[in-house]
Design a binder for these strands. Structure first.
Lengths: 261, 261
DNA sequence: GATGCATACTCGTATAGACGAGTGGGCAAG
DNA sequence: CTTGCCCACTCGTCTATACGAGTATGCATC
């Protein structure tokens, strides 16, 4: 059991760097060097107070910095821990290619099981509603849309929340309006209905989550979200679906392959 | 000048929601409703202390929450302001297509000027070094690589920091090793040297910035970064370049177009 | 053995006070 | 008019203290 001094060093009173930053630096460096590993418990606030000879608020300020950076998470009653890096799910750009359209299960399920995780889909809601201006513009200004909402979980952990919007005139009274649209998902149904899919546009942003997103995705502080909006076009060039998805950024890597032509 | 009470309401002492969260909620709601707009100054800490009848640390706690969410930024000596949304730069997936390879200026410059912004490139560094394990693996384990580092700014604001790595045996003593590789950039040079480009792989992650990234990109708190790693392959399937770029997430939208085949 | 409680530890919330440092306006002196 | 200073206001940092609430452990009780 190495002493705290050997792991964290001491403050430099001559430095003009704020004390809480120096403490955060010391902890960050110790984490980077592997002195604390994923999931390890950091020294408690009291221990840090004693070690550095500062007040508790100063220590909390330092720990709060690390949490904002996504390096640490605190657990009430237990301690502050080095944030574990969850396994990431890799989304390849060809995941919606026709050849990958599994006739039995949803793509998410197949892929998660292949990776050894336990997939769940949850919060399913299908309803008709008036589109927001943004969705409306992307879909060619339909008066109403069918909205399909669902949340995806891996091993019990929520990782993604998605809503598909389809023009109501296209989706009403079809299997797409059912909670379970059947094998191959709504893209298979769209093609059966004569809307041969031509291409997808995807727009990607990253930002910090809203409080509502923190709740539904159970996000630790310091974890951003990836916001992906996909529009599907049929062979006539009509936008037939917009899928708006918000992903826990620490659970995903998006992969795209682009031709150099 | 509406009263603070009409804009922010009052605390609910019966609620079990923490006071600083209630204050943050009030401010967030006021921002969402447009009572404070982009760039507007929020009430000062002292005003909030007086209005809500709480201590200053409680108010600071609330304001700090809003900053973590990316909704507000504080400026020492001036106040706390609703974070302005900078104009975003849209990166299309075909931006490296051969047909877009401008023979005069760099893609970044052309595009920025078209959008009415003032582009700058800065911090240019070209040196030979030993690759990190990750870069090494992507490039087929060369002993050494040529690294080209540069920072991009729009209207004086840093938005992106990128490093290109090329196997040294391929780049040494070529225009690619010069600070300015000439018209069309290094991709044009690679093709002239017989490495006809075939495709690119891009991997996208989002996370909170490291302290070093906060400095070089001058990031406000509550702004994540998009981390994009692009690998370029020539027609023989050899990886000829890896470009590692870190972007201020509030300055970018990435756009991809995918075939549905 | 199972239950339940006391206790000691953890972090969460809040108060009150002090001083430092950046900003900007006003005023007085030149 | 310009310069320079002072002052008021802003947020930044730090101390000291108090109590609440979640967690884990061990011990006493049943």
């Amino acid at each position: 059991m190495p002493s705290l001094t050997s792991v964290l060093g001491v403050l430099d009173p001559t430095s003009d760097r704020a004390v809480f930053r120096q403490i955060a630096d010391a902890l960050r460096e110790a984490i980077d060097k592997g002195r604390f590993r994923e999931g390890d418990k950091l020294p408690s606030e009291t221990e840090l107070v004693d070690h550095f000879g500062v007040s508790r608020m100063t220590v909390r300020n330092a720990l709060s910095l690390l949490q904002q950076e996504g390096l640490a998470v605190s657990e009430h009653g237990k301690g502050v821990f080095v944030r574990p890096r969850p396994p990431v799910r890799r989304l390849a750009s060809d995941r919606f290619a026709r050849r990958h359209r599994d006739q039995g299960k949803a793509a998410f399920t197949v892929e998660a099981e292949a990776a050894g995780s336990r997939p769940e889909v949850d919060n399913l809601e299908v309803k008709e509603e008036r589109p927001s201006p943004d969705i409306s513009a992307r879909l060619g200004s339909p008066r109403k849309v069918l909205a399909r909402r669902r949340r995806y979980l891996l091993d019990g952990r929520p990782v993604e929340f998605a809503t598909s919007y389809l023009p109501l005139d296209l989706a009403r009274n079809t299997p797409i309006a059912q909670p379970n649209p059947g094998p191959g998902g709504i893209y298979a149904r769209l093609e059966e209905m004569g809307h041969r899919l031509d291409h997808f546009d995807e727009e990607i942003r990253a930002r910090m989550p809203s409080p509502a997103e923190v709740r539904t995705l159970q996000l630790a502080s310091g974890v951003p979200v990836i916001h992906l909006v996909r529009t599907a076009y049929d062979a006539e060039g009509r936008a037939v679906e917009v899928c708006d998805t918000v992903m826990a950024a620490d659970a995903y890597v998006l992969a795209y392959q682009l031709p150099a032509n």
